[in-house]
Nucleic acid binder design. Sequence first.
DNA 1: TATAGATACTACGACAGACATAGTATGACA
DNA 2: TGTCATACTATGTCTGTCGTAGTATCTATA
Lengths: 105, 105
Amino acid sequence: MISSDMIRGYVDTMILYFLMDRPSYAYELSRQIRQRTQEKYILKETTLYSALSRLEQAGYVASFSDESSGKRRTYYRLLEAGRDYYEEKCREWELIKQVIERFIR
Amino acid sequence: MISSDMIRGYVDTMILYFLMDRPSYAYELSRQIRQRTQEKYILKETTLYSALSRLEQAGYVASFSDESSGKRRTYYRLLEAGRDYYEEKCREWELIKQVIERFIR
DNA sequence: TATAGATACTACGACAGACATAGTATGACA
DNA sequence: TGTCATACTATGTCTGTCGTAGTATCTATA
């Protein structure tokens, strides 16, 4: 398991990664992240919800309600600014990787 | 410049990286980190000092005073547990790198 | 010899992101 | 009818990093 201090700052990236394809909602994102990391990282629900509202606040995603599945869900879709933000995060990652690697033996 | 949220959790690693070679003190470590990242990451003094005392508290490093340079300095040397901790951090990094890379396109 | 700048360290408080805990409410299924 | 998975909300805590501000010593230079 991965400690959250090491992942801090990448939660946004994880969320946006999935929203690049299609809108999604918290519970599904949680499952997707767990799966994609093979349970190596499990995002806490509260962390996820607060991250989503932060992203909405920032204008990176927009939420809408949907009940067509029977259950009421709050979906989030990626906005243009969110796409840019994601791409910026990806570039930033390359830089950070290089920097940290200089301290690894 | 790199935001501190992205680096959070790696400050210990950066410090220990240098202490692997020889004892050092805060001000020198600060300079070394700045240099090694080519100014891409500049550790704030307060962050550094608190990290060092945290590491000492945890039994990873030990401090000692030295005045032979003219100026009174608090040096920190790596303890056995600190060496283990550093190596663990390096292994953890490989894992984290893999995990995060799954969310980058 | 004063004075500016680099060095070395300390104290205190603020803040943000992740988390713990606890709860509500609905649908599916046996 | 009751249990489990789903979907979400509220509130407060903790930790690491940073901002600000300060003390004190050494060095260089005018």
